[in-house]
């Protein structure tokens, strides 16, 4: 196992990742806007303070915690020295998506009157089992597949249907990550007609 520090001062390549992230945001405003519209649909739609919105905040915060961890996991992968281009670029692009999810989820939680979960100072990852590029990509695929299932399980329990729609939008993005990672690994990209 490996505990990964989230302290930005300790991360030498964080600046490069941030540059990649800025580049991503500059080129993907259209992609972001669909989810943003659904999530940040206005305060009248996201009524603060009632029991339903408190439950929604709890679901969003759990998702936010998992997204923070995904960002950290891709950082570990990027810094592992095991990823070569173009897999490295792919990992950084996917990390940028997760950072976009973090930003949007956090803003939405604030809109709902909640307090967004912060990234942990340290995360534990099974780095002792990551010896090759394929190991790193397979680990990422495992996380992405789990994220798809988590969002799938969250969609029906949101009180606010706009939030459910936005969660489905994130689900679609993470399902694409999973499929692309499987493809890079030489596995059938989309192994079944349904996800569960």
């Amino acid at each position: 196992m490996f505990a990964f520090s989230q302290d930005p001062r300790a991360r030498n390549s964080e600046a490069a990742v941030d540059a990649s992230r800025r580049s991503f945001f500059n080129h993907s405003g259209l992609l972001l806007s669909g989810a943003a519209i659904a999530l940040l649909a206005g305060r009248e739609a996201l009524a603060k303070g009632n029991a339903s919105s408190a439950a929604d905040v709890s679901i969003l915060n759990t998702a936010l915690g998992a997204e923070h961890e995904a960002v950290a996991a891709y950082q570990v992968g990027a810094e592992s020295g095991l990823l070569q281009k173009p897999a490295l670029d792919l990992a950084l692009t996917f990390q940028g998506h997760h950072k976009a999810h973090v930003e949007l989820l956090a803003k939405t939680i604030i809109t709902l009157g909640g307090k967004p979960a912060e990234a942990r100072k340290q995360y534990t990852f099974p780095t002792d089992t990551l010896k090759s590029q394929a190991d790193v990509l397979r680990f990422a695929a495992t996380l992405e597949k789990g994220a798809v299932s988590a969002y799938l399980g969250a969609v029906p329990v949101f009180g606010n249907r706009d939030l459910a729609k936005a969660a489905a939008s994130i689900l679609g993005d993470e399902a694409m990550h999973w499929a692309v990672l499987r493809n890079v690994l030489g596995e059938t990209p989309v192994p079944a007609a349904f996800v569960s």
């Binding site: 196992m1 915690g65 998992a66 534990t124 789990g146 988590a150």
Partner: peptide, 15 residues
């Protein structure tokens, strides 16, 4: 169990 692995692991705490 793969569905659980967005948030859980056997041996260590996650989300």
């Amino acid at each position: 169990y793969e569905r659980c692995q967005a948030c859980h692991a056997l041996a260590y705490d996650r989300t």
